[in-house]
Design a protein around this nucleic acid. Structure first.
Length: 428
RNA sequence: GGAGAGGUGGCAGAGUGGCCGAAUGCGUCACCUUGCUAAGGUGAUGUACCGGUAACGGUACCGGGGGUUCGAAUCCCCCCCUCUCCGCCA
């Protein structure tokens, strides 16, 4: 949610932001919100005055003689009628204003690149030279299926397309990668959390996924609950409605969870393999801190660095892109994607997404803190992937494959795989 | 799933129709007193919105929403949450 004051003071900037995000269908919400806000602000002083009168009259009445009391009662009934009309108008105005306001996306930062979609994201950093090999590299599907590690057919029979079975050493590797990521984050001082996977609408709304993301979300209608697409949702919502103390900030959390995505509208895209699946495991980092842009920027750098450290430990080449306006979601002010080299794509593929929101999510969540000076402010929130698997297994299998189909493990993962430096048997 | 109890300020806890934004206690903060410490005294101590440069004034909020009433923390209805007992179950 944007601060209504920002909207009043500089509607052009808000509209420009909506356009930069290429959400032209939401431009009208800005104008609508301003109109509704204007009417509401006209209404409130009248309402307050009437209620004040009603209150005072009520207090007076108990002291009156029965006759005068009767007269006053009649007068008060009239006032009540009138007041009811105003109250109803106020209620609808507030509801409509909230609805319009919730449609208005966060304003993208000035340094967000212009652009329509992910093809216009701007590379800001490239790490690791992609090694060249003399043999024909296999895809992770080819390796996995030849090794008996992957079974898409049976998975599809059980659960439909975009599902997978990880078997044997690949199941272990999947867990090893996640476990490494958790341990790394705990060393960075993050508090590990195992969050609920089913959340109320309020959490989806508060983090900015609703309205808009309903089609991407598995929903348990009977219970009014939603399966999370990322643990950002429960973790960022953890302190919703609270007023934290500045001395307790920043809050740094790391969560491992299953994530569920319907992937509606992606038919025909990345249909093979582990890249785009309905369910996966993700280690996610979330930071809540004071409302200070400089601090947010520092956190953003450091959560990106945390993810980079994992990729470096896994000895994988990657690059970082600044996500352009058109590829940015509703709540983000700025987003870096980290893309890891995937030989089967002969390209980098998105493996991480690091966002900063300033107070946009915090406003929706009523997530606040009391400053040392005693004032209450909305927090700033940020989050980033640490590792998402099995997607992360794609570069690991493909980049560390050897000619015979075995896979060399990066040193960091060896202790997590029972000391083995290579997994698989010669199959090619 | 069945039966019952309950949700009030940072916490504890009173309040069952107007004098209640809410007693009292604890905690916290400021000042005072006592040479330190302990103790004591005085005052302050929620959030949001509206008006005002400000001091300040007004309004709303007692889990959430609706209703009854001139007037609701208090009465009625629905929902959410917590606890106890029974059943079922990983």
């Amino acid at each position: 949610m944007l601060d209504i004051k920002v909207l009043r003071d500089d509607p052009e900037a808000v509209t420009a932001g909506v356009r930069k995000k290429r959400m032209t269908d939401r431009v009208a919400a800005v104008e609508q919100a301003l109109v509704l806000d204007g009417e509401l602000r006209g209404l409130i002083p009248k309402l307050d005055a009437m209620r004040s009168e009603q209150k005072n009259a009520g207090k007076l009445m108990i002291k009156l003689a029965p006759l005068a009391r009767e007269q006053m009662l009649a007068k008060q009934k009239e006032l009540k009628q009138e007041l009811q009309g105003f109250l109803e108008r106020e209620k609808t105005l507030r509801a409509e204003l909230d609805q319009q306001l919730s449609l208005i996306p966060n304003i993208p930062d000035a340094d967000v690149p212009e652009g329509r979609d992910d093809s216009e994201n701007v590379e800001v950093k490239r790490v690791g030279q992609v090694r060249t090999v003399t043999f024909a590299q296999k895809t992770h599907c080819e390796i996995g299926e030849a090794q008996g590690w992957l079974d898409f057919e049976r998975a599809a029979a059980i659960s439909g397309s975009r599902n997978y079975l990880l078997i044997g050493d690949l199941a272990l590797l999947h867990d090893a990668v996640l476990r490494y990521a958790i341990d790394h984050m705990v060393r960075q001082g993050f508090t590990p959390i195992d969050p609920p996977l089913l959340v109320r609408d309020a959490a989806m709304f508060g983090t900015g996924f609703f309205p808009g993301g309903e089609e991407q979300t598995y929903r348990c209608e009977k219970d009014g609950l939603n399966l999370i697409g990322t643990s950002e949702v429960p973790i960022t919502s953890m302190h919703a409605g609270e007023i934290l103390l500045e001395k307790d900030l920043p809050k740094k959390y790391v969560a491992r969870s299953a994530c569920f995505r319907r992937e509606a509208g992606t038919y025909g895209k990345d249909t093979r393999g582990l890249y785009r699946v309905h369910q996966f495991q993700k280690v996610e980092q979330v930071v809540l801190d004071v409302a200070d842009k400089g601090r947010s920027l520092e956190h953003h750098q450091s959560i990106v660095a945390n993810a980079e450290a994992c990729l470096q430990a896994f000895e994988l080449p990657y690059r970082i892109v600044a996500v352009c306006g058109g590829d940015l979601g509703v709540p983000q002010a700025f987003k870096y994607d980290i893309e890891t080299w995937m030989p089967s794509r002969n390209n980098y593929g998105e493996t991480h997404s690091a966002s900063r929101f300033y107070d946009y999510q915090a406003r929706r969540l009523q997530l606040r803190y009391r400053s040392e000076a005693g004032k209450v402010h909305y927090c700033h929130t940020l989050n980033n992937t640490v590792i998402a698997s099995p997607r992360a297994l794609i570069p690991i299998l493909e980049y560390h494959q050897q000619q015979d189909g075995t896979v060399r493990l990066p040193a960091a993962l060896v202790p997590y795989m029972g000391g083995r430096e290579v997994i698989g048997r010669p199959v090619f």
